[in-house]
Amino acid sequence: MSQETVAIIIGAGPAGIATSACLNLLSIPNIVLEREDCIASLWKKKSYDRLKLHLAKQYCQLPHLSFPSHFPTFVPKNMFVQYLDSYVSRFNVNPLYNRSVESASREDGEKWRVAARNAGSSEMEVFEGKFLVVATGENSDGFVPKVLGLEGFGGEVVHSSEYDNGKRYSGKDVLVVGCGNSGIEIAYDLVNYGARVAISIRSPVNILTKEMVQFGMSLLKFLPCNVVDKMFQTLIKFKYGDLSHYGLQTPSEGPFYLKATTGQSPVIDVGTMEKIKTGDIQVFQSITSIKGDIIEFTSGQTSRFQAIVFATGYKSTVRKWLKDDGGLFNEDGMPKKRAPNHWKGENGMYCVGFARKGLIGIANDAQKVANDIRLILRQQEGRCVF
């Protein structure tokens, strides 16, 4: 037996619930399948305590529901989760939880067939629909790079998705690997809990404050990206000085150009730069190898650590279960086309949450997908669409 619907949505993070909400408002039946036991599991279970939205709230709201006026400009994790819970209730989004999708394929050229394992009963369930929306996003599974000797490291090794706060690391030597927003904030959090902290940085980064990013996004409404970037490259130098003195390299490209063309977000300084300048956080280059508790870096430096936190991002899991991709995804499970042309494939295949544009990208894609499905359904019904 199979359950039939119009649209099957894989994933109940912000992307999945936003798409379901948009479809519900258009009275288009849909089913949301989620492998965890709650919506937004990345936010509820796999994010550190001090996390806040790095963009101002007006850039982070989902379709058809603004944040409450009393929420601060930069919304903390617990309030964002509260907003998401209110969102699913308001728009009658009812995911099926504990459903781990094992395959999704196109059947008979007319419908999608999704097989999912029910973790509660261990039974395989089958769902069929005209449309398939992949909403598992860019951040599906935590990624830890291969490091020579890592398996022999005697201390604790965690991915940033397993880190909540630095309480248990007080007095310990901790290396944070990665200088994205998670890495830079976790390093700061660890220092505040009394850890001795170092951070391993592989690539050049643009460092901005939350307020600088908010100002820049406002300017981009009126000025070309290259003009805004030149302004901010000057502002970064004025704010932080020559960061190369502290082991940090700045890319030649500006922060907003890199975000638009590669999806690489600027790093938001939450106080970490001051800790680096005072020496409370050491900066090392990439790891070359690990021998016991001694870590060697590409600079030739070595140091002992008792714990490693890999803030090295996530990877898409689409290729593990998607059998027919409708020409949408590449070998890495990411869209072949860049935004804004990334969201639609062939044969009723869509994706939401892969634009590399954060929550504002999710909101835009969810509405595009819902409206496109409505258009196709109307055309199939033989009605004129104006």
Rank of each mutant, 00 (worst) to 15 (best):
P72R: 07
V191A: 04
W343T: 04
I9Y: 09
E151Y: 00
F74Y: 15
T234W: 02
L42I: 12
S316M: 02
F71Y: 15
S86W: 01
R374M: 11
G11E: 10
F127A: 04
Y163T: 08
A116Q: 03
F305T: 11
I290P: 11
N192L: 05
A339P: 15
Y240T: 04
A307V: 13
M124H: 00
V309W: 08
F67H: 07
I8H: 03
I295A: 07
R338K: 15
N92M: 13
N330Y: 03
T312N: 10
A115E: 11
V133W: 06
G183E: 08
F386P: 00
E138V: 15
S299T: 14
D189I: 10
C384F: 12
F127R: 04
L51N: 09
S86Y: 01
Y59C: 09
Q306S: 15
G155E: 14
K57G: 00
K45P: 02
D189V: 08
K44D: 02
H342Y: 13
P63R: 06
F238H: 07
P255D: 13
L219Q: 15
F222L: 10
G178N: 05
G183F: 03
R90S: 02
P145N: 02
V177D: 10
T250E: 11
L26T: 02
L328W: 03
T288L: 06
R356D: 12
A119L: 15
S299K: 05
K46W: 12
A307H: 14
Y169T: 06
T136C: 11
S182L: 01
V177Q: 09
V197G: 05
Q3S: 04
E156F: 06
M217W: 12
I9E: 10
C384L: 07
F238K: 12
K344E: 14
D324L: 01
N364K: 08
G271V: 11
A119W: 09
H159F: 06
D324F: 02
Y193H: 15
D325A: 04
V88D: 00
V114L: 02
R35S: 14
F127M: 08
L377S: 10
